[in-house]
Design a binder for these strands. Structure first.
Length: 379
DNA sequence: AAATGCGACAACCGCATTATC
DNA sequence: CGATAATGCGGTTGTCGCATT
């Protein structure tokens, strides 16, 4: 069985593209388009390249209006927020950042943002084989039953958990005291991310973007149950609707309305049940004081922003952070139990258990709780 | 100056999904 | 309706260049 190769690997050139190849490809596509057939394209123009390689080169490098490097703070913030909410759906994230490619964002995340957020782990160990993502290494290092569970999680899931733990650590360190004990913490929520009076930049009508908002089923991914439930609930939302071009709908709740899917994801992304029950209004209400260029409502997004860009708050909250980078992960510091009371119950339960502190055995060995989070996070 | 470490980024690979026959 | 081809996506790898030892 096995799938036929997309091209004759023996006769195709691999490795970096030469300026001549770039020029050929660019000139042809600008004049004729892709013709809807990437596989045939290299033969047409006499390139010894795989069609997939041509497509990638065009989308990631040659396409007009591509931006490289110099991610702005806004862009960083969007990436972080979206990553926390939807995980490594780079194409979807890229669709929110015109001119950026999924590959670019992915690289930026892996090389910079992740480290910035999760912190560096001591002296790095040489060699790729040893370069486990910090998230994996850190969570795997937690004790007890968490180890096996952590192994079952994808690195993406672990990173997102860690980011939340970071936010929770920040939250409990300097935020909880200032809010009502009844008020649930405000987990990142895209509907506050994509603000009313800040329409998203126009999306380039490229094929990459167009497909980015399509419904895609990834059976290998453990789909967020909430998302599935909402999808079922939104019975009127047809697949055609999902496939529609993204449109902005400032009138309808002022949310970004990408024909459905992203919006669904956004609304569902990472909201605690308690927040869903009563915290949303508060989240939105306080949004006018956003410190980030009018983009985000106050809440974890601001904390995230501060975490990324403000050394002073991090210094206070994380006990010795320097230059906005916190070098000790909160899950290792394990915020005190009281501080997480009121947080998303399941998540708090899990973090409490995985931190191996707090009431012994209180929540450990509860596969249901863990599973809830696996379902939510494991992408 | 050479060796080593490391970050950044382009490109590749394999799999899932979608389209077509 | 199943088989096959094409496309899209995300994870991973290879390579280059700069920094450090």
């Amino acid at each position: 069985m096995g799938r036929a190769p997309c091209c004759d690997k023996a006769s195709v050139k691999k490795g970096p593209w030469s300026p001549e190849e770039d020029a050929k490809l660019k000139a042809y596509i600008e004049e004729n388009g892709t013709g809807g057939n990437w596989i045939a394209l290299p033969q047409k123009i006499g390139l010894k390249r795989c069609g997939k390689s041509c497509r990638l080169r065009w989308l990631n490098y040659l396409r007009p209006n591509i931006k490289h490097g110099d991610f702005t703070e806004e862009e960083e913030h969007i990436i972080c927020s979206l990553y926390i909410s939807i995980g490594s759906r780079w194409s979807i994230i890229a669709a929110q950042l015109p001119g950026r490619t999924d590959n670019d964002i992915k690289n930026y995340w892996n090389t910079k943002l992740k480290k910035k957020l999760l912190g560096k782990r001591g002296p790095s160990r040489r060699g790729r084989a040893n370069q486990e993502p910090a998230a994996c290494g850190t969570l795997a290092a937690t004790e007890g039953g968490a180890t096996a569970a952590a192994q079952a999680l994808s690195s993406s899931a672990l990173e997102r958990i860690q980011l939340h733990m970071r936010l929770q650590g920040l939250y409990s360190a300097f935020s909880c005291a200032s809010i009502s004990s009844n008020a649930p913490p405000q987990w990142p929520k895209l509907e506050t991310t994509l603000l009313p009076n800040r329409p998203l930049p126009a999306v380039q009508p490229t094929d990459a973007v167009a497909t980015a908002v399509r419904v895609q089923h990834h059976p290998q991914h453990l789909v967020d149950q909430t998302l599935a439930a909402a999808a079922a609930a939104a019975a009127t939302t047809t697949s055609e609707a999902f496939e529609a071009e993204p449109v902005l709908d400032p009138a309808a709740g002022a949310n970004y309305m990408p024909g459905g899917r992203l919006d669904q994801i956004a609304k569902l992304g990472f909201c605690s049940s308690s927040t869903e029950a009563g915290g949303v209004a508060g989240t939105v209400e306080s949004s006018s004081s956003s410190s980030l260029l009018g983009w985000f409502g106050y809440g974890p997004h601001d904390e995230l922003y501060d975490f990324l860009y403000s050394s002073s708050r991090c210094d206070q909250s994380a006990g010795g952070a320097q230059g906005g980078i916190v070098h000790h992960l909160p899950e290792l510091q394990c915020p005190d139990v009281g501080a997480v009371v009121g947080a998303d119950e399941k998540f708090s339960a899990w973090t409490t258990a995985s931190c191996d502190y707090g009431p012994a055995g209180q929540l450990q060995g509860n596969p249901v709780n863990m599973q809830d989070y696996v379902l939510g996070y494991d992408q």
